[in-house]
């Protein structure tokens, strides 16, 4: 029984209880202080400094708007911003889901068949070497203006991390483990379902998280080039008319969306592989 890794609380019991509680309180306080209080104070101070600087140096709004101005703009034009956000959300999510399905299928094919691997490999290397951003103007030529090219651009942007992580994941089962299940007379199918796929999941999720952060970026770049809707378009439009507070408001909403997607991916990961070392 002593082999279980559970801390032995008897050490604390023998200690002076008051002293112990004082230390616990101090540890809790330090955790709050370093964990949330200090960063929060720093953030507020920064915004305050920014606000004061803008008024103090009488900076024109088109150069640098004060935080309050940005906030006001956001409130005033909330409905427009939300409709742009919705467009970006649709492009990002549809593109991401297509990339996910496609990436996992292609990754699984590469990991299980050496011939497919050899056939696809040079194409993937070439495609991966091209900076994705240059594809955006081409999509305008090939597919034209609108949601479809936005979605395709998100796919281009998020496909590779998913393929790569799927291939790595499916190939990462230990040789000895594979021999062990071979000794238990597992067939290919069982080996795939019971060993290779669970082993692959943590890798696949790291790819998914990279893709999830890439999706809004891809959507916004696509909107820079080939759209008259979406937060990327709103940003270009705002900058073009020197409406800097509106540009800032768009950027803030894009960022919040990016962070939300990231946390969603983290949540799904946590629920799917609670057994993995990174989740315990």
């Amino acid at each position: 029984m002593t082999e279980l890794r559970i801390d032995n609380p008897s050490a604390a019991e023998t200690e002076d209880l008051a002293e112990h509680q004082r230390m616990v309180r101090r540890a809790k306080w330090l955790k709050i202080y370093h964990g949330s209080l200090l960063p929060l104070l720093s953030g507020i101070a920064g915004l305050l400094l920014w606000e004061l600087a803008v008024w103090g140096f009488a900076l024109p709004q088109y150069l640098l708007p004060a935080p309050m101005q940005v906030f006001e703009t956001m409130i005033d034009r909330w409905p427009v911003l939300m409709s742009h956000l919705w467009y970006t959300v649709v492009a990002s999510s549809v593109g991401f889901v297509i990339a996910l399905v496609l990436g996992i299928v292609v990754g699984a094919a590469i990991a299980t068949s050496r011939s497919i691997d050899r056939v696809l490999y040079p194409w993937l290397v070439i495609a991966h070497a091209i900076p994705k951003v240059v594809v955006a103007p081409l999509l305008l030529v090939w597919i034209g203006f609108g949601l479809k090219s936005g979605i395709i651009f998100v796919v281009v942007f998020t496909f590779f991390p998913i393929v790569v992580s799927t291939v790595t994941g499916l190939k990462s089962a230990e040789p000895d483990l594979l021999q062990l299940v071979k000794s238990m007379r597992a067939n290919r199918w069982q080996t795939m379902w019971k060993i290779r796929i669970p082993t692959a999941l943590p890798h696949v999720f790291s790819g998914i998280k990279i893709a999830a952060t890439g999706a809004p970026v891809g959507a916004v770049i696509g909107e820079f080039v080939a759209s008259n809707r979406g937060l990327g378009y709103a940003l270009i439009q705002a900058v073009g008319s020197l409406d800097t507070p509106y540009a800032f408001a768009s950027v803030i909403i894009i960022s919040v969306f990016g962070v939300t997607i990231w946390y969603l991916a983290e949540l799904v990961e946590k629920l799917s592989i609670p057994w993995h070392a990174s989740q315990r």
Binding site: E174, D176, V181, S183, Q190, K194, P198
Partner: peptide, 26 residues
């Protein structure tokens, strides 16, 4: 039955489920 130096237990299964693996595969 085979036992290697590494125990090669599957982290996504409970202890009992790990022990039952050979039966499950058949």
């Amino acid at each position: 039955g085979v036992v290697f130096q590494k125990d090669l237990l599957l982290d996504w299964r409970t202890v009992l489920e790990n022990v039952l693996l050979p039966a499950e595969l058949r």
